[in-house]
């Protein structure tokens, strides 16, 4: 229980720190004298879309599968607990 509270507290502190980092605005770039057409951008400044797209779809799949797995694990745990309790109650009734 205490460990859970500590972990939750740490996660919240990290979230707030990350948000604060986002708030800090980066230094303004110098004024631009001309516009550069997107096709003429140097290779190192072009951001490929495919990795972002794959990351987004991959994340959705992983999140849903992890959640399904967590439900299945919790259901199995509760099922085991129910069986154990039913067995104990039945045993006690047999003795009485």
């Amino acid at each position: 229980m205490r460990r859970g509270v500590t972990v939750t507290f740490l996660v919240m502190v990290l979230t707030v720190s990350a948000a604060a980092a986002f708030v800090q605005q980066p230094a303004q770039p110098p004024s631009q004298g001309e516009f550069v057409p997107v096709k003429e951008l140097p290779q190192h400044e072009q951001l490929p879309a495919a990795p972002l797209l794959v990351a987004a779809y991959g994340f959705v799949w992983v999140a849903l599968l992890v959640y399904l797995f967590s439900i299945w694990r919790r259901l199995s745990r509760v099922g085991r607990e129910m069986d154990e309790l039913s067995r104990r109650i039945a045993e006690r009734e047999r003795r009485a």
Binding site: I71, R74, L75, V78, G79, E81, M82, L85, S86, R88, I89, R92
Partner: peptide, 15 residues
């Protein structure tokens, strides 16, 4: 899952 948990609580009380 929540309904099963409620049943477990009921069984604990019974026990």
């Amino acid at each position: 899952l929540e309904e099963r948990r409620a049943q477990v609580e009921h069984l604990y009380l019974e026990a």
